[in-house]
Nucleic acid binder design. Structure first.
Length: 635
RNA sequence: CGGGGCGUGGCUCAGCCUGGUAGAGCGCUCGGUUCGGGACCGAGAGGUCGGAGGUUCGAAUCCUCUCGCCCCGACCA
């Protein structure tokens, strides 16, 4: 391909509204162009990478017998109403109506009515396709003999994000591979889950990026387990903890924290109310340092302090769920107190899951201060007399992190500004409290799975997820089969997603330098960037054209920068920015010595060879690069 | 959705405070000289200053409304 004919405009300067590396580089390299917030055109170079990744996905899923189909992107409201998600999904679902509904609205207006347009919306843009696929399967599959079945599509999705950002990584429109499997029972769904898990490991392994499959929170859907696949990159939105001694890797919102040994701290004291006074000090560390008495002349160790968070369970959703720690249900419970060691952070997802709540919010600071009667920093699990907290204590669940089980002589906020109690023994002093793992695990914590390794922290970009759905959709939509006894059962489902365009962006987030992109070979738009440094020179032009033909004949993808009137330096800059793995330079200077030069984008190493040997040298470089990829991937 | 910011040629931005008939660099076109890490000279093309209304003799500039975009937060099967 001649670069002089390629649709591309590279930019020397970074566009102002590009805020992440992949977005900046893709715009500067002329790969994407924004049409609206979070909506991009994929220009030729980007689309080549996207298609290459799609092909990898197709090949690997094909190995597992998955069938590809394509569903509509405009979906009828009826299906979403059937599953219940039409109302549940929220404003990310872009809803609209067709001409028939519009005519109806117009007609009512003509009659003097003021119809609510939203109630006439009868279509949406598909953000995901559980409803459609379930509809297809229930209409076409009746017998256990047809199961299992695994169907996928690679398709444009639309989610009307509140705040689209990060270019292709969090756009509103994006390309996604979404797959759905249908099974006669749980065991078979589990088997398929692990088959897809392994397929994903192959897919991201072939991509040539560092990645990790991580255990994740299964969220409100309540599936039994789920893994996310993350491309590791410093700019990743998710924190991942990975044990250096075993396979356990998880999203930090899920990571199990180890039970810590309770330090010895002398005799057990009674609860001494308002024992420490640290006026005007707010931070945990400063407070602890100010907690001085005869027992603690240096101040209190941070691990001997406790902190207290007040959460609120949304009553609208909680309704009749049995409430641990208190009598009654969440329709009675508004507040939940969480007690942690002073040097630990609360993990809201763990709290939420423990409570079985769908939504959990921090109580707003003003409200919390009014409730407990103390300023932030001095709240605690023991209500002060006459406060609202004291009045409703019986209906406030007190959850205590397991690290404090058996702990004694702790401090806690006195619910009186500037004061802390001393001598807290949660088991003794907090009636009906529940001990559980509620904190964020941290880098360096001992892994509770193997008991030996320690957690290492990474940042990751979520690019794929495998999820066991169960019968949520098959039950609500009547997707059933007949077993060999003629009995009807709902199918057990799994779903499996890969963000295609996000993955390509994530690959760049992980692989770039100050000069531009460094493409992993398997998804590079072109593999070789052939630069004619003096295209006006007949010999250079002849050699470059010949090498281009030879490389293409040997199966390489070559972009030939044949542009005239451009200085070598400018071509080098463009080549670095576009970042194809290999750059082959043909110029008068080299040809004077009878050589062309091959440069590795990542290592910057240059090899000089005779033009006739260029193809063999490129092949050798490819083999070396692919070899390195084998060892670089995830685990 | 709350808070903040920005809309001036394809890109980056100046001009706005203090109204007077629109600029620079990059990119693009043509000619010439160059040519191994974003060369130089000369000549050009290209802008309803996001939109609407208002104030004014006169608005990119002041006022009102509106649309779009960006950032922080909340949200994220």
């Amino acid at each position: 391909m001649k670069q002089s004919k390629l649709l591309i405009q590279t930019l020397r300067e970074t566009p102002r509204d590009a805020d992440v590396v992949s977005q900046q580089l893709m715009i500067r390299a002329g790969m994407i162009q924004k049409a609206a917030a979070g909506i991009y055109s994929y220009l030729p170079l980007a689309y080549r990478s996207i298609r290459k990744f799609e092909e990898i996905v197709r090949e690997e899923l094909g190995r597992d017998g998955c069938q590809e189909l394509l569903m509509p992107s405009v979906l009828p409201a009826e299906l979403w109403q059937e599953s219940g998600r039409w109302t549940f999904y929220g404003d990310e679902l872009l809803r609209f109506c067709d001409r028939k509904a519009k005519a109806e609205i117009a007609e009512r207006r003509a009659r003097g009515e003021t119809p609510d347009e939203r109630s006439f919306y009868n279509f949406c843009l598909g953000p995901t396709h559980e409803e459609v696929i379930t509809d297809i399967v229930r209409k076409n599959v009746r017998s256990y003999k047809q199961l299992p079945m695994n169907l996928f599509q690679i398709q444009t999705k639309f989610r009307d994000e509140r705040r689209p950002r990060f270019g292709l990584m969090r756009g509103r429109e994006f390309t996604m591979k979404d797959g759905y499997s249908f099974h006669v029972d749980d065991a078979d769904a589990d088997r398929e889950y692990w088959a897809m898990f392994n397929a994903y490991k192959r897919i991201f392994g072939r991509l040539g990026v560092k990645f990790r499959p991580v255990e994740a929170d299964s969220g409100a859907i309540g599936g039994s387990f789920t893994h996310e696949f993350h491309v590791l990159a410093g700019s990743g939105e998710d924190a991942i903890l990975s044990c250096d001694g075993c396979e356990y890797t998880s999203n930090s919102e899920k990571t199990e924290a180890p039970q810590l040994p309770v330090g010895s701290c002398g005799d057990r004291f009674e609860l001494k109310r308002d024992h420490f006074c640290t006026p005007g000090v707010v931070g945990q560390v400063e407070q602890a340092a100010g907690m001085i008495d005869t027992e603690h002349p240096q101040g209190m160790a941070l691990a001997q302090t406790s902190k207290f968070y007040l959460f609120q369970v949304s009553t609208a959703i909680a309704e009749t769920h049995p409430a641990p720690g208190v009598e009654g249900t969440y329709s009675d419970v508004h507040y939940v107190g969480v007690v942690l060691r002073g040097d630990h952070e609360v993990n809201p997802v763990k709290v939420k899951n423990l409570l079985g709540a769908n939504a959990l919010d921090m109580v707003e600071i003003n409200e919390a201060e009014a409730f407990t009667g103390a300023k932030s920093g001095f709240m605690g699990p023991i209500p002060g007399e006459g406060t609202r907290f004291a009045n409703v204590r019986a209906s406030v669940a007190i959850l205590v992190d397991q690290s404090l089980k058996g702990a004694v002589n702790l401090t806690c906020g006195a619910n009186r500004t500037d004061y802390h109690h001393f001598g807290l023994d949660p088991e003794r002093d907090l009636k009906g409290c529940i001990f559980a793992d509620l904190r964020m695990a941290q880098e360096g914590d001992t892994c509770p799975r193997c008991g030996k390794g320690r957690y290492q922290a990474f940042r990751g970009i979520e690019v794929g997820q495998v999820f066991k759905l169960g019968t949520k959709y098959s039950k609500s939509m009547g997707c059933t089969f007949l077993d060999d006894q003629g009995q009807e059962h709902p199918m057990v489902m799994g779903c499996y997603g890969i963000g295609i365009t996000r993955t390509v962006a994530a690959a760049i987030e992980q692989n770039y330098d100050a000069d531009g992109i460094i493409w992993p070979w398997p998804i590079a738009p072109y593999q070789v960037h052939l630069l004619s440094l003096d295209p006006g020179n007949a010999e250079v032009a002849a050699v470059a054209d010949r090498v281009e033909r030879e490389l293409e004949a040997a199966g390489f993808e070559v972009l030939h920068d044949d542009r005239e009137g451009m200085s070598p330096g400018a071509k080098f800059k463009d080549a670095d920015l576009l970042g194809f793995p290999l750059r082959l330079m043909v110029g008068t200077k080299g040809l004077k010595d009878g050589v062309v030069e091959l440069r590795d984008r990542r290592t910057k190493a240059v090899v000089k060879v005779k033009p006739e040997a260029a193809v063999a040298e490129v092949a050798a470089a490819r083999d070396r690069i692919m070899q390195e990829l084998e060892t670089a991937g995830g685990r």
